[in-house]
Amino acid sequence: MNFRGRMTGLALLSAVMTMPGPALSMTSNQPPPGEPALLSEHGARQVAWRFGIVHVEEIARCGSRWEIAGRDRDGNETMLDISAYDGRILD
């Protein structure tokens, strides 16, 4: 590639990187308009297992979150709220 081609490529890359995109503009727990939830119930269970719940007693989707109640390895009750869009643990 010649110098002119590289400069055109760099200019294009620079323009694309400075454009706001959905991932950069999302500040809430909401998907972009028209996008369905990405995390299935099975996916929410897997997140809960990674965070120490070994027995899920109740799981429910409430809007933009999965609410999970269960027990840890020691039998203690624990609850998790998980984003239905990206699998993050919510406060």
Rank of each mutant, 00 (worst) to 15 (best):
W66S: 12
W49V: 03
A44P: 00
S28V: 10
L39M: 02
T8S: 14
A48Q: 01
A15S: 04
S14P: 09
R71T: 07
A11E: 05
R71I: 12
P20W: 04
M7Q: 09
E77S: 12
E41R: 02
D86H: 12
S40D: 04
P22T: 14
Q30K: 07
V16W: 07
L39P: 03
F51P: 10
N2S: 00
M7D: 13
E57I: 13
N76L: 11
D86W: 05
N2R: 00
S83G: 06
V56D: 15
G75L: 07
E58M: 08
I89S: 04
Y85I: 02
W49F: 07
M7C: 10
R73H: 13
P20H: 06
G21L: 08
G34A: 00
P31V: 11
S64L: 12
R50A: 13
M19V: 07
A15D: 06
V16G: 03
F51K: 05
C62T: 15
I82Y: 00
P22F: 11
D72H: 07
E35G: 04
A84N: 00
A69S: 15
S40P: 02
M17S: 11
P22S: 14
S40E: 04
S64D: 15
A60F: 14
M19Y: 10
I59D: 01
P31F: 06
L12D: 10
V54E: 05
G70T: 09
G21Y: 06
Y85W: 02
A69W: 13
Q46L: 00
P36I: 08
P22W: 13
L13Y: 04
P33M: 01
I82R: 00
G43V: 02
L24T: 01
S40A: 01
S25Y: 05
M19P: 01
A69M: 15
F3V: 15
I82E: 01
R45V: 12
H42F: 08
G9T: 08
D86L: 11
L12G: 08
I68V: 15
E41T: 08
G52L: 06
A15Q: 03
M26P: 04
E57L: 14
V47M: 00
S40T: 05
R45S: 07
F51Y: 01
S28A: 06
D74V: 10
G87H: 05
A15H: 06
V56K: 09
V56T: 13
R88F: 09
